[in-house]
Nucleic acid binder design. Structure first.
Lengths: 337, 337
DNA sequence: GTGAAAGCGCTAACAG
DNA sequence: CTGTTAGCGCTTTCAC
């Protein structure tokens, strides 16, 4: 294993000079720098991560806590994780992958041991057990998601409430008066993951303002679950002409069922989805949808953390504005017979 | 920050004793151990990761390289990643998330810096650039996937060839003679990711043995792509009664299209999928399928690595036997009219 | 069964 | 612009 001392010797300079060439923290003459860099290349030197972390009390690692469960939004999680990892690299950081399994203990362990300089927490619940720990540590953190109380925290999330409102507005503009919402699995609501409830709030309050009727049903993914729920909805509210779907694994089943029942989309029924672009585009009907900006959330989270680590940055709640893309699944409400 | 020295002082013992209590590498009297553990708890001590890594030249971190692209098998990747992370924790390791983006450089960086003690490499191509580096380092590694030459490497993978064969056998047993294979996106084949080609090999050679006809078509995901391909297949081979699908995002479109065309599954057409259990169960027709054992692959990879790190373990290729579960999408071939 | 002490490889004052 | 030096917190001989 090549050490900094060996590089120094090879280049005929002191250890600190090599260190400074690497960090750029003080000016080095062009010729010295050249020689050092040459030696580094020749010897194939890589600074030892442990030694560096010990001496500088910086690991250059950012921890990412992802949910253990995969009952929702798997592609979104994955996209965020990848965006986090690649963005982190552009800033010289690596990413440590933690699952929610360990819970608050993971936070203690990682911050306590100095394993990571900062952390990103996903799948935040309204009253999350990890929040007090995050507030109580000096290590920066960013939540992807929005808890009930954001005091002393930095959060990045899609503005779910505005997302819900946007879906309703779109349908209202098209003349729909009676709307059904297909939501996430019941467990997601029970867990009080903020996003699902916020979406519903935004949706309902805008509907009230616009005088629309809204019926919400949680839905496990899959064809059978969707079939049962659709039957109940059309039974309770036969006049329903608009659907808002916030559940990837319910989208295609819903489309298949409507087709099966001879209800044309968008002529008879309009569907607006809240999902990643890819799902919207690949569906059997190209879906009018509000995209979940997974990459941007991951990128923003890292960028905020890096700013914090580089010194100064206040806590902040960043709500990304939703954007609705009109595709082939929504159209004017059918006129009453 | 609490240090080992402080714990030692608090407990009235030497630093080395505390260290040995932590590592269990030499026997400690019950009373001393008790006192030390008490101090650790009271002071809230967490060993510093950097110092530990430096002194022991062990970071207790395992690197996981996942593909950057998300053009295939996202849920599978995610499941593997989560299984890797949780299994690693049970052995005292953390997981560093690397994307394929950096390519071979990531391997150099991570092994050279001692950031990770070992690594798991996913999405292996037949002639992968990273292989020479992995062979040339003393740090253990496990591939999830199978390259062309496995000399000096440890690999864990589903036996894709047997998987293909199994699908054919199932359909043959049911009396199908004419089979179409819906594969991954063309890019996956061009990239020479082993699994897709191996599946095809297994499928074709078993078909030859059994005297079945096989037609293979690569397929971008989504409804439109699937529609185009299905039309071509039924045009070229109108007698096709069995489908093998190895592409998550083609499954539901295929089912929808068949339904649309009035072809009943499984009365007229049988479908066998190669996909995660969840997809098979949630589809609009419960799918006869061969599961991709994502969790097991992740778990096995870690366990092999830990064994290697703990001393001795030779290189080895582990091919997991495929298991086919019969569900509602396959049945006897329709008798000729 | 326990202590003392020598590093691990690097960073960051301090000194010139 | 460059060198000298004192640790960072832990592991691990060596000694008792």
């Amino acid at each position: 294993m090549v050490t900094l001392a060996e590089v120094a010797q090879h280049a005929g300079v002191s250890a600190s000079t090599v260190s400074y060439v690497l960090s750029g923290k003080r000016s080095i003459s062009a010729s010295t720098r050249e020689r050092v860099e040459q030696s580094i290349r020749e010897l194939g030197y890589h600074p030892n991560a442990g030694a560096r972390a010990l001496a500088s009390s910086r690991s250059n690692i950012i921890a990412l806590m992802i949910p253990l469960r995969t009952d929702m939004y798997v592609p979104v999680m994955m996209e965020i994780a990848i965006a986090v990892a690649t963005t982190a690299r552009t800033h010289g950081y690596d990413v440590l992958l933690l699952t929610g399994e360990e819970g608050p203990d993971a936070v203690r362990r990682v911050t306590g041991s100095g394993l990571a300089d900062a952390m990103i927490v996903m799948d935040v619940e309204l009253e999350d057990e990890r929040l007090p720990l995050l507030r109580g540590t000096d290590r920066p953190s960013v939540l992807i998601g929005l808890p009930a109380d954001t005091t002393g925290l930095t959060c990045v999330d899609l503005d779910w409430s505005a997302t819900g409102a946007l879906c309703v507005e779109h349908l209202a503009t098209l003349g729909h008066r009676d709307i059904a919402v297909i939501g996430e699995a019941p467990a997601v609501y029970e867990r009080h993951t903020g996003f699902a409830e916020r979406t519903l709030d935004g949706l309902r309050s805008r509907a009230r303002e616009l005088g629309l009727k809204v019926l919400h049903r949680a839905c496990e993914g899959g064809f059978d679950a969707m079939a049962a729920i659709l039957a109940r909805i059309l039974d309770e509210r036969p006049g329903t002409t608009g659907f808002v779907v916030q559940n990837e694994s319910a989208v295609e089943p819903l489309l298949a069922l409507l087709r099966q029942q001879g209800r044309a989309v968008p002529e008879d029924i309009s569907v607006v989805a809240i999902c990643p672009e890819q799902v919207a585009v690949q569906a059997s009907v190209r879906l009018t949808s509000v995209a979940v900006p997974a990459q941007e959330m991951g990128r923003r989270a890292i960028e905020h953390l890096v700013t914090k680590l580089d010194g100064h940055a206040r806590d902040e709640v960043v709500l990304l504005a939703p954007e609705l893309t009109v595709r082939a699944s929504s159209g004017p409400a059918p006129s009453a017979p």
